[in-house]
Write a protein that binds this DNA or RNA. Structure first.
Lengths: 189, 189
DNA sequence: TAAAAACGTTGACTTTTGTCAACGCCCTTT
DNA sequence: AAAGGGCGTTGACAAAAGTCAACGTTTTTA
């Protein structure tokens, strides 16, 4: 699966990336079953994952033990609790494979070494950060400015494939509404 | 006001920052009155601002011309629409001085030159990104997991000074609720 | 300083959303 | 194949939040 990561990086930095082989050699391939936890809250997030295939849910539990979904990330994207990963503090978040997943993982020590020794990897990291941040900004704006119905319409426009790919329960959680409300509002469109 | 930025950088990178004077010389000091727009949606965000003093509101308008607040940023922090700044595309967001502000601004060309010529500036930018992102993640989690009442309590804990410093109208908008609901819920605590 | 505008609160009412329960369906899993 | 569990939908009701209006207060601004 490493060729997918190679392509991902080359798409962003060009075909001639110095140190690319060194970078790729540092990643470990890890497989997760549907429903399996990749990261459990309280544990430190010691890996950053490139999703070769599959789909991850990033979520926190509220007082009633509901899963509240901060993000849903699909193949050819990166996933981690970057806050925990960067600080070394325990994670407040959980990451779960909602489909069978093949992930390519870099550990924290390896990541830091790559950052220091491969300048191009530094660029990759910045792009991960920028993309994650841009995504978050979008998402916050939907929460402060849109009704539940409009958030559904927004998701249909912005990430249409998610609608057919994931369970309604998960999408409702991603939109910050109950499963029942999602079911009812969806029927109105 | 440039000494505030100097201190900000030294606090993060140490007292001996190579190229610091070059960096500081690149910033322009700009003053904004209370209520003045720093960035208007549709315009490109051509500056990144370090807030020396004051407070900025980042917001978008919805269909009813309400101001929906994505973020509130106070002195000794950075503010911009990084998505627009990075891509050069028109901004979807507005930035307004909600208090009289002194901002230190770097233009896009100067920013890019610093990134290429001063390695330490690169680190500063990454820290801005990481901090902005961490802040966004927190904020999303409050929206997907907390009720309006709990978001108010969260704000009291997480950013207590904002509560006394800003108008209720603005805080309500930041929390994604109406001014009236905020007034009523606040009375319950 | 006086007028105007914006703000904060409260009441009455509407709309939106959540909760609990029931039911059929699909999908595992044994 | 049968049992069990989870999912998606719907109904009935409750709770939460929004809207509109009014009013006194504070803040701007002319």
């Amino acid at each position: 699966m490493i060729h997918l990561l190679r392509q991902h990086i080359q798409n962003r930095l060009g075909d001639d990336v110095e140190g690319l082989d060194k970078v790729l050699a540092t990643f470990e391939e890890r497989h997760f079953k549907r429903g399996e936890l990749v990261l459990k809250q309280g544990d430190c997030c010691t890996y950053v994952y490139y999703i070769a295939t599959g789909c991850l849910q990033v979520f926190i539990y509220d007082a009633d033990i509901n899963e509240n979904t901060r993000d849903i990330v699909t193949e050819d994207n990166w996933c981690a609790d970057l806050t925990s990963f960067g600080s070394g503090q325990p994670s407040a978040e959980n990451i779960k494979a909602v489909e069978p997943c093949v992930l390519l993982a870099v550990s924290r020590p390896n990541f830091q070494q790559l950052m220091q020794t491969v300048p191009q990897f530094d660029k990759v990291y910045r792009q991960i950060l920028e993309a994650s941040y841009a995504n978050s900004v979008y998402r916050i704006n939907t929460f402060v400015s849109l009704s539940a119905l409009d958030r559904i319409k927004w998701l249909m426009d912005y990430r249409p494939k998610l609608m057919s790919r994931l369970s309604n329960k998960l999408i409702a959680s991603y939109l910050g509404i109950s499963q029942e409300t999602f079911s009812r509002l969806k029927a109105k469109i």
